[in-house]
Amino acid sequence: MDRIEITPFAATAAAWDAALAALAPAAPVQAHAGYGAIAASSGRGLRRLQIHAGGRLVGLAQVLGRGGLWLCSRGPVFAADLPEVTRRQALRALARVLPGVLIATPEMPVAGFGLVPLVTARHQAIWDLTPEEGALRAGLQGKWRNRLVAAERAGLRVRVERAAGWLIAAEAQQRADRGYRALPPAFAEAWAQQSPGSALVLSAGTATAPRLAGVMVLRAGAGASYHLGWSGPEGRAAGAHNLLLWQAALRLRGMGLRSFDLGDINSEAGAGLMHFKLGTGASVHRLGATCLVLPG
């Protein structure tokens, strides 16, 4: 078994993102430097660590801490060819160097001695954007495609919005009305400031009602993540969200991005939402269980 070495990543945030891109081009937003910087600005501890096995860089871990509890969300990000036994060994070595307790949700499934499951594995809908446009559209499920066609025929217009304040406020009210949880509204504003040009905001509407629905997508490396969305009654009736997701996918693909993370699809979020996300042709990506990592 290769010897695991955990060392601080002492270079710049840009160098971190470059190393992340080399290791996993479509790494999740939570692994990128901007996410860590935003958390640090709100008072959390931030550590960026690199993981070597047998002298080779095999993983990167961005961990956030408060009160002796360290969280590694959607991480560590490991090299795709790394065996599970080495991933487990690396997690335990990571827990050994941190001054406190480590809880991790690995991007790749990993289990075994020294990892105590706390929350069962989650699943993400990941839309592969590499096929050409015709193949991408052919991959849409029938009902989803029919809703898209109906929205297109209804004459809804999609616009790229420069400002996101209206959408953030509308989604915050929607969140309060429906009682679901997500990152605070201030995160979206901070992300846009931290990484100018990396937030794609689209609206769909008509000439008389230009904002019937909207989405905000965050770009990071060769991937993008659906961050938030809102739709009024008219937008829902017209299938505006289907049109917005499709247009977002085309724009992201045109930027050279490879994948579009549509978010969690576990049952408590609602079967309807799960079917909507998978209706794009997205595949199911299983994360590791959220676990308490024992030092080893």
Rank of each mutant, 00 (worst) to 15 (best):
A269Q: 15
A204M: 05
L23S: 00
A190K: 08
T290F: 07
R178N: 07
L218D: 01
S73E: 15
C291P: 06
Q193S: 02
A21N: 01
G288S: 08
G112W: 10
A11P: 00
R162Q: 14
A80S: 15
T206I: 06
H227P: 00
Q141E: 14
L20H: 10
L243E: 08
L257W: 08
M274D: 03
R147L: 04
S259V: 12
L167R: 08
L245E: 02
R92A: 11
T120A: 15
V217L: 11
K277E: 05
G296V: 08
T105D: 08
L94V: 11
E5W: 02
A269E: 10
A26M: 00
A138K: 15
V119D: 07
I6Y: 04
S225W: 04
G139F: 03
L91K: 07
A24W: 06
L129G: 12
L167Y: 06
A80E: 15
A213M: 04
G155Q: 07
G229C: 07
W16N: 04
F9S: 00
A269G: 12
W191S: 00
E171T: 11
G214K: 04
R47E: 06
I4R: 02
V158G: 04
A125L: 13
W127Y: 14
L202P: 07
R122S: 14
T105W: 02
R251Y: 01
G263P: 09
Q124G: 06
I103A: 04
A95L: 12
G179W: 10
Y180C: 12
L69V: 15
K143C: 04
L252W: 08
F260A: 05
A164E: 07
V284A: 07
S267K: 07
A37N: 10
R96V: 05
S203E: 03
R96F: 04
R122H: 13
A269Y: 13
L292V: 09
G279A: 11
A11I: 00
A150Q: 14
W70T: 11
A18Y: 01
F187M: 11
A169E: 15
R145H: 11
Q89N: 06
S225H: 12
L115W: 08
V284T: 15
A213D: 01
L115F: 05
W246F: 02
S283G: 15
L252R: 09
I168Q: 01
R87W: 13
R3Q: 11
A90T: 06
L244H: 00
R66V: 04
N242A: 05
R147S: 13
G232C: 15
R253M: 01
A33M: 10
W16C: 02
F276G: 05
R66M: 01
G296H: 07
I168V: 15
T12Q: 12
W191P: 00
V85N: 09
T208G: 03
A53Q: 02
D128H: 11
Q62W: 05
L262D: 02
A111G: 01
F260M: 06
F187K: 00
T7N: 00
G281V: 12
G68L: 08
T12N: 12
Q173K: 14
S42T: 14
V110P: 06
L69S: 09
